[in-house]
Design a protein around this nucleic acid. Structure first.
Lengths: 123, 123
DNA sequence: CTGAATCCCCACGGATACTG
DNA sequence: CAGTATCCGTGGGGATTCAG
């Protein structure tokens, strides 16, 4: 049924396509937050920090579509919606965390490199 | 010397900021390509596949600024420019590869999840 | 509380053409 | 070969408002 994604050429193309959707700031931050357990919308929003509600809801919808996140609605008043990782999402957690912690650990180094580069180019 | 990025609050903010620059399609694909060894501009372009020369050169410049990539010019005619990873870049290779191979390995699963999701919503 | 809808701006990113 | 410059459209993403 599906086109065969398993020859090397098209798998590379698909890798590039998938990375386009997966490898973005909000996706990684959300997966990272949900990696510590289920969270509700506004808590997620607060914990991520500087994400707008639009981006949070649209990114969550994409992640739900991709089978990475589960949306669990408790129809109370007011309604409660809890987001959590699927098995696929939990599987994604490790690589995401690896990249995130690399970024954190090397923040200073990168910052210094930037300053050096800008000094050369500016001054 | 440097401001202390090590308290939790600001390290999270910096993580988000850095991920915004690092976690994008082109950065990951380039680091991945260069992970196999130095490459010249057009070879890099061909191997990545669908990247425009504008995006390739601008992303390479950002990576050079961040101290992740080194640009090595051999002033011949025609000129040869070789790009390679710095120590920092090589250090980044593992997490990048982890995320990329996760994406490739789960391409089919994600695709199936999408189709299911779209069927529910469409039909 | 959890969003969807709307408006709007601008940066990402493609196409093309031109330099050294 | 290895870019830079320019034009230009699309969509990312913020602010605000409305709904369930």
């Amino acid at each position: 049924m599906q086109p065969d994604y398993h020859d090397e050429t098209s798998s590379c193309l698909r890798a590039s396509e998938l990375l386009g959707r997966i490898a973005n700031k909000w996706t990684l931050l959300i997966v990272r937050e949900l990696g510590t357990g289920p969270k509700r919308f506004n808590l997620l929003r607060r914990d991520i920090g500087d994400i707008s509600q639009k981006m949070l809801s649209s990114t969550l919808k994409s992640l739900e579509r991709d089978g990475i996140v589960i949306r669990d609605v408790t129809p109370t008043m007011p309604p409660q919606v809890e987001y959590s990782l699927t098995a696929l999402g939990r599987d994604m957690k490790a690589p995401v965390e690896a990249l995130a912690s690399w970024a954190i650990q090397n923040a200073d180094t990168i910052d210094a490199a930037r300053k050096r580069f800008d000094m050369h180019n500016h001054g």
